[in-house]
Amino acid sequence: MNKRILKNTLAAAGVALAYLPLAQAGWTQEVKVKSVVVVSSGGINVAVEPALSGCTSQSGYGARYASIYPSHPGLKAMHANLLLAMNSGTSVRLYLTDPQCTVGEMVLGEALW
């Protein structure tokens, strides 16, 4: 590939990434669960669509994964709800407690507020 074309392509990709919304604390919009990862610490990472960005996920899964840490008292219930949502196509909303995308709460199905 021509160096100029490669340079322009990379520059365009950088501009596109600059406009992705970074994660913020608070409720996400209704999202679809795309991936659930149980990490070695016992926590869970979850990827959703529309995708998150700017997260700091546990175990190095990247900026698109929100994390539920093993110390979360609702870990097992959230894991079950995430699997149900992923397999049924049901929407969820996640409450992110910080800009690193730590999940504190979740709503399975339509939020009524």
Rank of each mutant, 00 (worst) to 15 (best):
V107A: 08
A66Y: 12
I68T: 07
A63W: 03
C101F: 09
G54C: 11
N8G: 01
T9G: 00
K7Y: 07
Q24L: 12
K34Q: 10
L6S: 12
N81K: 14
V103N: 11
M86R: 14
V103G: 09
G26H: 03
V48I: 14
A63Q: 12
V103I: 14
M86N: 02
T97G: 14
M1T: 14
I5W: 11
V31F: 04
A77K: 10
G54K: 09
H79M: 11
G89T: 05
V36F: 05
R93V: 07
T9F: 03
T102D: 03
A47W: 04
S35A: 07
Q29M: 03
L112N: 15
N2S: 15
A25V: 00
Y61K: 06
I44C: 04
A11R: 05
S67P: 08
I68A: 06
P73C: 09
A47P: 00
Q100C: 04
V31G: 06
N8A: 07
G89P: 15
E105Y: 06
I5F: 09
L6Y: 04
L10T: 09
L6H: 09
K32Q: 15
W113A: 14
V103A: 11
P99S: 13
W113D: 15
A85C: 08
V36L: 09
P21T: 03
V15L: 08
Q58C: 11
Y19E: 14
Y65T: 05
R4D: 13
C101N: 11
V48M: 06
A47I: 03
V33D: 00
S67N: 09
A77I: 11
E110P: 00
S41Q: 03
Q100E: 07
W113E: 15
L17F: 09
S71N: 10
V48S: 04
A51N: 05
